[in-house]
Simulated scan of single mutants.
Amino acid sequence: MANIDYYLGTISPYCYLAGTRLEDIAERHGASITYKPLDLLQLFDRTGGIRPADRHPSRMEYRAQELPRWAAHLDMPFNLKPAHWPVNMAPSSYALIAAQDAGGGDLGGLVHGFTRAVWAEDRDISDDSVIREILAAHGFDPALADKGLFIGAETYGRNLEQAVEAGAFGAPFYVVRETGQRFWGQDRLDFLDRHLASA
């Protein structure tokens, strides 16, 4: 059975556009997923990337065309200028880490719930009440928003270190542990699917 490490940012528009296709692919191939939320901006800093606010205007103009284009292609609602972006990724990431440790709910749905809240629902995922609502909507105890904060912070930092070690430099980023194959971007999910089919 393949094991996929999924490095993600809960405010990433490209993680939102990934939807739950990773989960569908993993189910089809009997693969497991370990969700590794991290501070995406620090990952950019550590691996030669540029934070969105510091990118050249031509890159930002292209992004403004490409994101709605992909959303339309995938038939997903999308707001290019969400009311709450960027926001602190840590609270939602800690909640995801706690939910993964607790089990019993829909983790893929939870990830998508956080990203959808930003990019399609104009909700603030750094707000405790929003985090609780999204946890509950995906089968988790809302109280996980306040549990394991120390462990969450520790894991969140460790995920960043592991991402750098694994060769990740953006999100979504998928690494198949057994083969070391890396896939960057929601537009590489078909390649991941093919790789698992041939592994």
Rank of each mutant, 00 (worst) to 15 (best):
D106C: 11
V87K: 12
L107R: 02
A199G: 08
S32D: 07
F169C: 04
R188V: 01
M89Q: 06
E121Y: 04
R116P: 04
A199M: 12
S198G: 10
N3K: 14
E66W: 10
K36W: 05
A71Q: 03
D128I: 12
P13V: 03
L67W: 03
F150P: 10
R28H: 13
A136Q: 14
F114M: 08
S198M: 11
P77G: 04
I25Y: 04
K36A: 01
A99C: 02
P52V: 00
P82L: 07
G49L: 00
A197S: 15
A2P: 13
G19M: 13
L8T: 07
I33W: 00
A72C: 03
A31M: 14
G49A: 02
Q100M: 05
G30T: 13
V176F: 06
M1V: 11
S93K: 06
P68S: 09
G19A: 15
Q100R: 05
E121G: 03
A99Y: 04
R69G: 09
L110Y: 06
V118A: 03
F140K: 02
G167V: 07
A31R: 10
G19L: 08
K81P: 02
W119T: 00
A166Y: 04
D24H: 14
S129Q: 10
A171P: 00
L196T: 03
H56K: 13
L43C: 05
Y62H: 12
G139N: 05
E165P: 02
A90D: 03
R63T: 06
Q186E: 15
L17G: 06
A171W: 01
S92H: 04
R46N: 12
P57R: 02
Q186K: 05
W119C: 02
D146S: 14
H56T: 10
D128P: 04
A71P: 01
A120M: 04
Q186V: 07
A199S: 08
D128R: 13
K147V: 05
R51G: 12
E27N: 14
L96P: 03
G9H: 01
D128Q: 12
D187H: 15
Q162A: 15
D193Y: 04
N88H: 14
R158G: 05
M60W: 03
A99H: 02
S93R: 01
L149F: 05
F150V: 14
H112S: 14
K81M: 10
Y156P: 05
R158L: 08
R132Q: 15
G105D: 09
H112M: 14
E121N: 11
Y35I: 15
G9A: 05
D39Q: 09
I11E: 08
P13H: 15
G113Y: 01
A53Y: 10
V175S: 00
D106T: 10
Y94D: 05
S32L: 03
M76N: 07
Q186Y: 05
L74H: 08
N88T: 11
Y174T: 11
P37V: 01
P57N: 06
S12T: 01
M1E: 11
A98T: 02
Y7I: 10
A199P: 00
D5T: 07
M1L: 11
M89D: 12
G9F: 04
G139W: 04
P77S: 05
L43M: 06
